[in-house]
């Protein structure tokens, strides 16, 4: 098609569009996450003995860290659906935040035991089970953010995909906090990070192909 006929065709095909709005995107993601959380409790998937859990510092550490990471990542991801926004600086700040959260958790209760005890504390079988659940709980926000990414126009696909993965993974882990029977910060740091890492790696690998424009 020649240049002029392309312009004619595009002008002919023009229809009014509804502008993409950051707040609307964030509201959609929040709604998806809200429904997931509601279903999670309604289906009785939460851990028994919630009142005692509320006394445990590791519970609040998990909720605060994961909620903060999920919220900031989701905002940055939604911002980066705009072509003119570069998410690189935000990712660097998030990396620091993740390290601070992990460091805080390890300070709560990792250090004093010997190596053998540490290995026992990791509890491989349950750990892999937990990581699997974190991955499963990350799927709704991955789908929601992925669809919004396709509708948007991110110009740094890799960075945006990474943010989508991080937001979804942190949210999946956040929900899983209400079901996780383990309170050991070392166990949480290792297995939650494993589950989140898988989600981030997969979205980072797949989303740029699916959301290419």
């Amino acid at each position: 098609m020649s240049y002029d006929s392309l312009i004619d065709q595009l002008a002919k095909d023009l229809k009014p569009v509804r502008r993409r709005r950051l707040n609307a995107d964030l509201a959609i993601v929040a709604a998806i996450c809200g429904v997931e959380l509601l279903l999670f409790f309604r289906l009785g998937m939460a851990r028994a003995g919630m009142p005692s859990m509320l006394q445990h510092p590791s519970f609040w550490w998990r909720l605060a860290s994961l909620g903060l990471i999920a919220g900031i990542s989701a905002i940055l991801a939604a911002l980066s659906f705009n072509p003119a926004f570069s998410p690189r600086r935000g990712i660097r700040a998030l990396a620091v935040l993740v390290l601070v959260c992990l460091g805080t958790g390890l300070c709560i209760g990792a250090g004093p035991d010997g190596l053998k005890t540490l290995v026992q504390r990791l509890d491989w079988f349950d750990g892999l089970h937990c990581a699997g659940k974190v991955i499963a709980l990350s799927l709704p926000p991955v789908v929601g953010l992925g669809l919004l990414m396709r509708r948007g126009a991110p110009t740094d696909m890799r960075a945006t995909s990474l943010l989508v993965g991080l937001a979804a993974a942190a949210w999946g882990a956040f929900v899983f906090v209400f079901a996780c029977p383990f309170d050991d910060p070392l166990y949480i740091a290792v297995w939650y990070s494993t589950g989140c890492g898988v989600v981030v790696a997969l979205t980072r690998m797949l989303l740029p192909r699916l959301a290419r424009w």
């Binding site: 392309l6 595009l10 502008r19 993409r20 659906f81 705009n82 072509p83 003119a84 110009t155």
Partner: peptide, 26 residues
């Protein structure tokens, strides 16, 4: 031009047009 057509809803009128166009071109 096709990309601009398909993604015209992502332009935010509160922002300058030049950076939006330059980002897509780049």
């Amino acid at each position: 031009l096709l990309a601009i057509h398909e993604k015209r809803h992502t332009y935010d009128p509160k922002q300058a047009f030049g950076p939006w166009l330059a980002a897509i071109a780049r």
